[in-house]
Design a binder for these strands. Structure first.
Lengths: 208, 208
DNA sequence: GCAGTAGTGTACCATAGGTATAGTTAATCG
DNA sequence: CGATTAACTATACCTATGGTACACTACTGC
């Protein structure tokens, strides 16, 4: 009657993380109970504490997984954009378009951003989790900042722009777009915002 | 030893709401305990349930208060902008600038948006609270949509733009900007995003 | 002196997070 | 083959918290 096997460890952990992520995005971290997680995955409370020494460790693992996934996604996206264009501007514009299409093709819209979720519950977490969150946003800033610097070498901006602010605008539009999409239950909002950003970037570097 | 007086009712309620808003924005609604609220305000649990028949009623009152405050703020802001300019475009640009300045002058940055907070904990709330949230966002859309229609009568856009999406962009940038500001603990992010939006609006209707 | 407002006091219950400890099963490695 | 390790189960227990219910009270204005 017991189906455990040493091989299934990482698999169980993954299930826990998946289910926890869903629950956290739906009702927040505090309201996500260990009991419901273990019920969903089919293990006992002891099993849970075998995988995570406490709830904060779960929070940490959740966030780390989310950040890694998003980073891989963006890497892939803009690498593919650049493969289609020598030019850093047009490669970026293609990447943004693919990003918008990807967001549009999500069947139920974007499930939510853990960084944003944690941000509105920051007092629940240890310092290290909060710092992880901060670093994630700074990485996005750096990624896009570098891209805009590269673009500006070839295309001097037609409008004076603070590139750090413009780089942050990507994170801002994604996080804000997810929220407005969710609240309106309209999955088109997020991709439309990304396309607006794309138009803005184009007009900054190419003019009207 | 008892200092209660019938006059202090609304005052106590306001204190509860204020403290609850702070706490909800810091750790989420579920983790905001009634016990801490009554401890902060100095009443008993029964006293709390005299003011709010349950926790969901508190959520509702909090959100309603937040929405009303924000609406009044925007009304005032753009009315003042329009007083300085006959022109709907330049009045709006002035309003946006004042908005950015106002956000910059907040000593500790924006405390957070309840709509966004609730959005990431929606399963905790009744249908009516969620609908209140949706309506709030739709009101912002309508407000700015109307403004852009008005502007477009005099200034045909130099770039093709979906005005509903552009109207949503205000909410998106504010909510996203608050999040990135909070996560980076940099209160400049939000005002800078508003100024970026301002530049965008200008370039759309006036060109580079 | 009575109604209404703004509470207090007490009792109660289910659930949650967390700790501790001992035992079990199945694969793996030497 | 035997020992070790990974991945759990079982049981028990503790404290805090959210939330509900209901009876009672003190002050205030009319």
């Amino acid at each position: 009657m017991n189906e455990i096997s040493p091989k299934r460890g990482p698999e169980t952990r993954q299930h826990l993380l998946e289910f926890a992520a869903q629950s956290v995005l739906a009702k927040g971290f505090a309201a996500t109970s260990i009991d419901e997680l273990i019920a969903a995955v089919g293990i006992t409370k002891s099993g849970f504490f075998y995988h995570f020494k406490n709830k904060n460790e779960l929070a940490r693992a959740l966030l780390q997984r989310y950040i890694d996934d998003e980073e891989a996604l963006l890497d892939d996206l803009f690498r593919r954009g650049d493969e289609l264009h020598e030019d850093p501007l047009h490669g970026f514009l293609v990447g943004l378009k693919m990003f918008a299409e990807m967001m549009q093709d999500l069947p139920n819209g974007h499930p939510g951003c853990l960084v944003a979720s944690y941000c509105y519950q920051e007092n629940l977490f240890d310092r290290d989790v909060r710092e992880l969150n901060t670093e994630a946003v700074l990485q996005w800033r750096q990624r896009f900042r570098e891209r805009f610097d590269l673009i500006a070498e070839r295309y001097p901006p037609k409008i004076p722009v603070d590139f750090d602010a413009l780089a942050d605008m990507v994170s801002v539009l994604v996080d804000g777009g997810i929220i407005i999409s969710k609240v309106l239950r309209d999955k088109e909002v997020l991709p439309k915002q990304i396309m607006l950003l794309r138009d803005y970037v184009r007009v900054i570097f190419l003019g009207t």
